[in-house]
C-alpha cells in the first residue's frame, strides 16, 4: 500500500485552496495509507492553536501524522507549547527521509 508525504507550505489565512489538501491527507489516511502532512514556511501558522487550526487537528485524529518544521516554527516565534494537539515539531530531515523511502510526495 503506498505511503504519502504531503508538504503544505501555505497559510490558510492567505489562500483558500488549502482545506482540500488537509482533506486529501485525511482521506488517504482513512483508506489505510500511512500519511505524513508536513507543514513548512507559512504552512505552520495553523499549527498554532487558533480558529484556523481545527482542520489540522481533525486530520490528525484520522491518523495523519502532522509534523511542523522546527525552523519555520522558530522563525515565526511559535513554541511547541502553543501547538494544537496532534501536531509535533520535526526537522526538515523528515522530508528527505521519506523521499528516500520512496513515499509518494506532493508539495502545495
Amino acid at each position: 500500500m503506498p505511503k504519502y508525504l504531503l508538504v503544505e507550505s501555505r497559510d490558510p489565512s492567505e489562500t483558500n485552496d488549502i482545506g482540500y489538501f488537509y482533506d486529501l491527507a485525511a482521506a488517504l489516511a482513512g483508506e489505510g495509507h500511512a500519511v505524513t502532512l508536513f507543514l513548512v514556511q507559512n504552512g505552520v501558522f495553523p499549527a498554532r492553536r487558533s480558529a484556523m487550526s481545527e482542520p489540522i487537528g481533525r486530520a490528525a485524529k484520522t491518523g495523519v501524522e502532522v509534523l511542523a518544521d522546527e525552523f519555520s516554527l522558530r522563525e515565526r516565534g511559535i513554541t511547541s507549547d502553543r501547538l494544537v494537539s496532534g501536531v509535533k515539531p520535526a526537522p526538515l530531515d523528515v522530508v528527505i527521509d521519506q523521499l528516500a523511502e520512496g513515499r509518494k510526495a506532493l508539495w502545495h
Binding site: 522530508v95 523521499l99 528516500a100 520512496g102 513515499r103 510526495a105 508539495w107
Partner: peptide, 10 residues
C-alpha cells in the same frame, strides 16, 4: 531517481 519532488510556484 528513487523519488522526485516538484516544488511549484503559486
Amino acid at each position: 531517481s528513487d523519488n522526485t519532488l516538484v516544488i511549484p510556484t503559486k
